[in-house]
């Protein structure tokens, strides 16, 4: 008898395997099956379910997370987020004022993006049937027309530069700190809508692919890219922008910031000759102030991601396997 574990939902290898088994249940599927589907006419849609404990955390709450999350899944594919459908599943007895607080935050994100709420569904279920409040959101929009091939990992080429728009792992570290009752001054989630940061990059013909590094973190995105294109990726630890709060949480709990979730930080692959201009564009927006070039795509070590460490050692970056569990001491 096989049962689902939290590891199946943590974004790494186990999630990948489960998603594969789910897709097999459907006789007809799209060919690339990414987070975001783009129709031949350029209209894009994505959906995502949101649950987080605690629901309020430094830098955001469940509502903001939901609106940013779906908008970002579109943004990284070059699709402007325009419409939102929202499904609310709340537990009997849930505080209505709290519900509205989440939704007002979601509303503020939509307002800033000029994204319109166009439909949804609301359910209240018996106490115990869900843990407080679950939100599911679907965002739709239109792809910004570009002459080049559609953005995606398939466009990665040896020599491409890998950019990171900000420090890795802020959301994951913030949630871990809250959950395990660690007080880390200055640490906040990076939860933010990425469209205003990333849209200017769409004018660069050498832009290959972008991904927001949610569950599984930066490390998982890099591994997925390397595996899907059978290319290698080499990154330099010293080039990574770092957040001291993330480092201290990671250190205390024995977690690797590379695998901690981000909710407003993206990895970008771009032709090397346009990397400088891309960095300039990213850094001119407050969300990208710390953007940096962290590595390159290479023909060496196909399917693998290598990290050159601060002291000049080299090691493999592998996909995390299950639920990230804090260690003993």
């Amino acid at each position: 008898m096989s049962r689902l574990t939290l590891g199946h939902g943590s974004g790494g290898r186990l999630t990948q395997q489960l998603v594969h088994r789910i897709a097999e249940c459907f006789p007809l599927t799209g060919h690339d099956m990414e987070d975001c589907a783009i129709a031949p006419d350029g209209s894009g849609a994505t959906m995502d379910g949101f649950t987080v404990t605690p629901r309020f955390f430094p830098g955001g709450n469940l509502g903001k997370l939901a609106a940013c999350g779906v908008a970002n899944d579109l943004a990284v594919r070059g699709v402007r987020p325009e419409q939102l459908l929202l499904s609310v599943i709340a537990e009997e007895g849930f505080d209505e004022e709290e519900l509205l607080a989440h939704l007002r935050n979601a509303g503020a994100v939509c307002d800033a993006l000029a994204m319109r709420l166009v439909g949804g569904d609301t359910k209240v279920v018996p106490r115990g049937a869900v843990d407080g409040l679950f939100l599911s959101a679907c965002a739709m929009g239109r792809e910004i027309p570009r002459r080049e091939e559609r953005l995606g990992a398939a466009r990665l080429q040896p020599g491409d530069t890998i950019l990171l728009t900000g420090p890795a792992g802020r959301h994951g570290a913030t949630i871990a700190a809250a959950r395990y009752e660690l007080d880390v001054p200055g640490l906040t989630s990076d939860c933010a809508a990425l469209w205003p940061l990333l849209a200017p990059l769409l004018s660069l013909p050498g832009l290959r692919a972008m991904r927001d590094c949610t569950r599984g973190g930066v490390g998982t995105v890099l591994c997925e890219w390397a595996e899907s294109r059978h290319l290698g990726i080499s990154v330099e630890e010293r080039a990574f922008p770092v957040d001291p709060g993330v480092l201290s949480v990671a250190d205390l709990l024995g977690l690797d910031p590379l695998y901690l979730a981000c909710e407003g930080t993206a990895v970008v692959a771009i032709a090397p000759e346009e990397a400088v201009e891309a960095l300039r564009l990213l850094r001119s927006h407050p969300l990208g102030a710390e953007a940096a070039a962290i590595g390159v795509v290479t023909e060496e070590h196909p399917n693998l991601v290598s990290l050159t460490t601060r002291i000049g050692g080299r090691r493999l970056v592998d996909m995390p396997v299950g639920e990230l569990l804090p260690r003993i001491c």
Binding site: E300, R315, L316, R327
Partner: peptide
């Protein structure tokens, strides 16, 4: 099992050699 276990560390960081 443990993130600090030598087998897990070998598996995670060195299974497929040092790239």
């Amino acid at each position: 099992v443990s993130s600090e276990g030598s087998c897990a560390a070998h598996y995670r960081y060195a299974l497929r050699g040092t790239p």
